[in-house]
Design a protein around this nucleic acid. Structure first.
Lengths: 188, 188
DNA sequence: GATAATTTTGTACGATTGTACTATTATTTT
DNA sequence: AAAATAATAGTACAATCGTACAAAATTATC
């Protein structure tokens, strides 16, 4: 039996991803987990705590994911391609609910800047990891720029796919990202 | 003296852009316009009507903007560059509040799909206009793809710039877009 | 100028929200 | 087993929300 706290955080992550932070209430989480509302308050006194816990766990997941990629993949090129493959694999969810990082940051950036500071850390993880891979065959300044550019493409694809509820947009952009990555490597 | 209705829609547009649709209340608009709360309800019976009116006016603005660009610019290349110039010019606002189209679509896509249908029309305007320009020197299928790609870059830049509250991200990406546009033209 | 229509305002209401609090049950510690 | 701590549930409360409605003020129409 999984601990209540973890059950709550899992439900919170899913609900925040699907409905947004502002549209996630204690009642929602209580209903979704089958637990009492007071119980959830016991584990997370304020609503902000719930978000912090959800983001923390997602950060943890991202860390493990990136570590596993670093180990699995031979070349830096393969590593970066693995990132693109992840985007493509998640095309359906991205078109249905947007990017978990991007949409949360967009929402929090509007009127919860303090909370956004935490959510932004997810971007940092991917960006620094990508930059490190690009540095295998590019100088620091260029590696930084390429990492940013790749993340821009991934986020833009998510926004458009979500707006049109059309996963094909993500797949088309993934193809473009691969071609772009190939060209970037060629030039170096 | 500007009509009350227009005053309300203007305030609604600004407030929705800055705070999001979910965090925009009748009380907010009343306070911002100095009008009574009941008055706003008189002009817009339901909150959805307020959003529809705000989106309608924004669509109108976009239409006029695109028409003016079509007239001003000589070549299709110049037209597309004008689009990039607009993104760059709005870098500060994009970093502070995100893209008015993108962030609204992201929010509505989460749990107001019916309203998103309307908001998506803003994307359609830009995409179809861009596609038409690209068709000056590209076949239909490729023109469609290029328009989508450019919009992806613009939206991605907005998301990242908003997440980091860093307008330089938009400016860097605008530079990349210009280079990209140049290359696309060269290849044709 | 009287009458009708429109515009504006203020308030009231039911629903939902985050939070606080108490009581009850389960688990651990001694 | 007894005591203490942690966990769970239910309820209460003030605040805010969208909406409904009635009265007052303004403008238009004849």
């Amino acid at each position: 039996m999984k601990g209540s706290r973890l059950t709550i955080v899992d439900a919170a992550r899913r609900h925040i991803y699907h409905n947004g932070y502002g549209s996630t209430s204690y009642a929602d989480i209580a209903h979704e987990t089958g637990l009492g509302k007071g119980n959830i308050q016991y584990h997370f006194k304020a609503k902000e705590d719930l978000l912090h816990a959800a983001v923390d766990q997602q950060i943890q997941d991202i860390r493990e994911q990136l570590e596993s990629w670093s180990l699995d993949c031979g070349t830096a090129y393969d590593c970066i391609e693995r990132f693109i493959a992840m985007v493509e694999k998640n095309a359906k969810n991205l078109s249905l609910h947007g990017c978990p990082m991007g949409s949360l940051n967009s929402e929090l950036g509007k009127h919860e800047r303090r909370l956004q500071d935490h959510a932004r850390a997810m971007f940092d993880l991917y960006l620094r990891w990508l930059e490190a891979r690009f540095r295998s065959f590019l100088p620091r300044k260029q590696a930084q720029a390429r990492a940013e550019q790749l993340m821009v493409m991934a986020q833009g694809a998510s926004v458009l796919a979500h707006a049109y509820e059309e996963s094909q947009i993500v797949r088309r952009q993934a193809k473009i990202m691969r071609q772009w990555l190939h060209d970037v490597c060629d030039q170096s």
